[in-house]
Amino acid sequence: VPGSALARKWRAGGVAPADTLDDDCLKKWCSLVAEKTGGKIKIDSYPAEQLGPYRDQFDNVVRGVQESGLLPLSPEFDKRLQAGYTIYLAQTWAEGRKIYAPGGWMFKLLEPIFLELGVKPLGFYFMGMDGFGTTKGPVVLPEDVAKLGIKVRTWNPADRLFFQEMGAQTVDIAFSELFTSLQTGVADAQDNAPLITYTFLRDVTKYYTDTNHLFEPLVLMVNLELWENLPEDQKKALQAAADESLAWANAKAEATADEYMKKMADMGIKVTRLTPEQRAKWFEYGKKSWKKFEEVIGKETMDIIRKNVTK
């Protein structure tokens, strides 16, 4: 089936809103591909989950219904992918870039899983690091979360265990209801990268703390069968285009995240930037939560993470 895709335009799906750095990265890749293949491969990009929820898109790339995408890890398809959502896998951008770069230990850990699933990972883009946005606060230390009686909306097993470890009450709310829930008080806090917090939740957020507990990678991927049937020069072109656009976007990502935090501060949100000592306190809870997280991703994977993160 993917063979027929050779003849027509490819589709590339993204998750972030149009005209964000994420979207620009995908668009840049598309235009570079057209350039480097001499127009033999043309890709249309669709931002903002227009091609469906990211899980569907991931599945569709696996099935070859959609040729490519810049998508979050979808652990439904293999629970080992959950490893990418380990709390404090990386605490700084430099660290994150290093472990996810081709040859980095996270890349090595995830690549075979992707190939097994049927997608070719071309590289990672970093959407940002999750911070803590809340209507109560300010929150500086993990103890503040329980002290202020903050109900945290979580979105995956890792952050759920993390906040429960510090004695917080966690709630499960669909993203579409999150804004209203923060407004009415069903939840008092959520953890997302500055981009998401600023774009969707700025009007209900009063405090934001850059806890950086989750390093959120998006993977630029192509359907494997389609990839394998490509001539060598086109494979090279696709990979080169990916390297170039990802390097370009990743170089800008940290500054962009800072920009969003500045925008939040400018509109009156109290933004707390943690000192390394303060973040170390959060890291302790993160590490404690790994014990239970091990049940989610399996001991084997957790051991690899332990070995690499603590060294």
């Binding site: 089936v1 469906g52 569907d56 599945d59 569709n60 099935r63 219904v65 959609q66």
Partner: peptide, 8 residues
């Protein structure tokens, strides 16, 4: 490919 229908 109609394979995407049911997962969707």
């Amino acid at each position: 490919n109609s394979g995407f229908a049911i997962p969707a």
